[in-house]
């Protein structure tokens, strides 16, 4: 579904991603872990071109999205993204946050989008927050709304950029629960996270990144039980 070939990204002289290639199948739940500065967020942000790769190609659903002639907006409509800092729109109600994109991009009519928002909000247990503003919500609620907002575009893949890193410990659970449910429904997911429990439980594949490379990857049980690289062993010994 997503095919990355020889992807490099540098900011000025600083090489963040060094010629990496990876393939993500439909239905996979890929979890990316690694120390900070390893390039995992940059890798994720390259997948929907929030960062423009310096070199290499990314193919999504048969379209080479790194081609400058591609209409990137229509590609992004099929790729949901959830951010570390939620990035809800503070000037709109929750309902409008969710329905803005489906309506403006012509995906749904107003009534349809609002019904969809209602349905999604009920699923995450926040149906009574439709008319609230983001400033009135807790971090966990904001992140659940952010997931709903991305889901409202009916994406084919969901990208999560450290979705629980900015949350109070108490609120991590409620967000992970929503993500687990998404995974159960068969959504293709790429998740950058520090939640090893989530990686083990939900992931179908774990990628360990360091220094702009994918150093090691495996299915979760084997990855955590028998890491092959010394760097991975060091990292896991610190976080587990």
């Amino acid at each position: 579904m997503i095919d990355v070939k020889n992807l490099s990204k540098s900011f000025g002289d600083h090489l963040v991603l060094d010629n990496l290639s990876e393939h993500i199948e439909e239905g996979e739940k890929v979890v990316i872990i690694g120390p900070s500065g390893s390039g995992k967020s940059t890798f994720l942000r390259c997948l929907n071109l929030l960062e423009t790769p310096t070199a290499g190609t990314i193919t999504f659903d048969g379209t080479v999205i790194t081609d400058p002639k591609v209409d990137i907006d229509s590609v992004r409509r099929k790729m949901g993204m959830v951010f570390q800092h939620f990035n809800l729109f503070p000037n709109m109600t929750v309902r409008r946050n969710i329905t803005l994109a489906p309506i403006r991009t012509g995906l749904m009519k107003k009534e349809e989008a609002e019904a969809e928002a209602e349905k999604l909000l009920r699923r995450v247990g926040l149906q009574d927050k439709a008319d609230a503003y983001p400033a009135q919500l807790s971090g966990g609620q904001k992140q659940r709304i952010a997931i709903v907002r991305a889901m409202a575009m009916r994406p084919k893949v969901m990208l999560f950029d450290e979705p629980t890193s900015a949350l109070d410990p108490e609120m991590v659970g409620e967000v992970l629960e929503v993500m687990k449910e998404l995974a159960r429904e068969g959504m293709t997911m790429v998740v950058v996270t520090h939640e090893m429990g989530f990686a083990r439980e939900v992931g179908t594949r774990v990628l360990f990144m360091d220094g702009g490379h994918i150093l090691e990857q495996n299915e979760p049980q084997a990855f955590f039980a028998h890491p092959r690289e010394q760097r991975t062993v060091d990292f896991l010994s610190k976080v587990l």
Binding site: D73, S74, R76, N91, L100, R104
Partner: peptide
């Protein structure tokens, strides 16, 4: 900057993101 990114990541174009999200704020 996250506001522009969030708008664009949803598939809104630059002008729509400016108009509905960035400019009102």
């Amino acid at each position: 900057g996250g506001q522009m990114e969030a708008g664009r990541s949803l598939g809104l174009n630059y002008l729509d993101t400016m108009r509905f999200i960035v400019v009102p704020q």
